[in-house]
């Protein structure tokens, strides 16, 4: 296992370099002028513009720019934005919000999703199953910005104004702590939650037909134990994969949800950087996201071996 992890980490280096190179190249090829973008509608002063270009080596050839950047990255320097701020500072300001939001969303989708899926599978064809199937289809079909605004209005505004219940806040506020994250996290989790519920339902129904589940019944075990000890653990293997990949996605920030609830996370930072064509910020953020993806997929693969003893990494 140890050697496997080391090998995976070594493999991650070329992936990381490749990803940064691609993103850097994409940013470089973008039409438009980042320096002009700083000035807005007005024509930028040519002298100031040239100064900025000099300062940030924007006149250098692409490969040289990339070389300077990547050597900086390996020395722990993610560079500076065109407004003179350290990219690493900007990321460390935004990232905690994203991490908190992602964790709350992840917990919501894992717990509610798996529970709904299990209940639906055990009541196959009955009312509860139909309810789960239809409601998840509904959630999957609606874009997140619709879910976000509707829930913001109903739970954040109406609930407070009409019934005086103030559980969910309309806009994110740091002082609210966990409570502040609940509504945005639920919105962010909704689509994945629906997929997790459906996946759990199918997977558990399939496992319930397995021979070893029949054996467990023939052993005279109670239904609870047959499902909990024998079926569920096997059924959860594909769900762990999905959740693992999704955690990587959640950590990458949520542009829409962050915007609706006014959370200054990684998603917003990245979106803004793209508007302003600030290559250093984009590449910095993306490098971080690629690293998170690599680590979460590695963790999922390791969790596999724990869940399924037939899988061994040598």
């Amino acid at each position: 296992m140890g050697r496997y992890v080391i090998r995976r980490l070594i493999q991650a280096i070329p992936v990381l370099i490749g990803a940064t190179f691609l993103i850097y190249w994409l940013c470089f090829s973008l039409p438009g002028d980042p320096v002009q973008a700083l000035a807005g509608e007005k024509k930028a002063d040519p002298i100031v513009a040239e100064m900025i270009r000099q300062k940030y080596h924007l006149n250098d050839p692409f490969l040289l720019q990339y070389w300077n950047y990547i050597t900086g990255v390996f020395q722990g320097n993610l560079g500076e934005s065109l407004t003179g701020r350290q990219v690493s500072d900007m990321i460390s300001e935004a990232f905690p919000f994203t991490v908190n939001l992602a964790i709350v969303a992840f917990v919501i989708e894992a717990i509610i999703g798996v529970l709904a899926g299990v209940m639906a599978a055990l009541r196959k064809g009955k009312f509860l199953d139909q309810l789960v199937l239809i409601s998840t289809l509904f959630v999957i079909s609606i874009p997140v910005f619709v879910t976000g605004f509707v829930l913001q209005l109903v739970l954040g505004v109406k609930l407070k104004n009409d019934y005086g219940i103030e559980i969910f806040s309309v806009s994110f506020n740091e002082e609210d702590g966990l409570r502040g994250y609940l509504l945005p996290a639920f919105v962010l989790a909704s689509t994945s939650l629906a997929y997790v519920a459906r996946l759990t339902r199918t997977s558990l129904m399939e496992t319930m037909r397995a021979d070893y589940v029949r054996t467990a019944v023939a052993k005279g075990l109670k239904k609870r134990r047959v499902i909990g000890r024998h079926a569920l653990r096997n059924a959860l293997i594909p769900i762990v994969t999905f959740l693992g990949a999704d955690l990587g996605g959640l950590m990458g920030g949520a542009v829409i949800t962050e915007k609706i609830f006014n959370i200054h996370g990684i998603g917003g930072l990245l979106a803004q950087a793209v508007y302003q064509k600030q290559g250093t910020i984009i590449v910095g953020v993306v490098t971080l996201l690629v690293m998170i993806y690599l680590i979460t997929t590695l963790l999922v693969d390791m969790l596999y071996a724990v869940l399924d003893p037939r899988i061994r990494y040598e």
């Binding site: 021979d211 070893y212 054996t215 023939a218 000890r229 024998h230 096997n234 003893p309």
Partner: peptide
Amino acid sequence: AMIFQDALSSLNPVM
């Protein structure tokens, strides 16, 4: 008690 045909699929792979 019952003994099944295919012991590989009849035993729980994760226990």
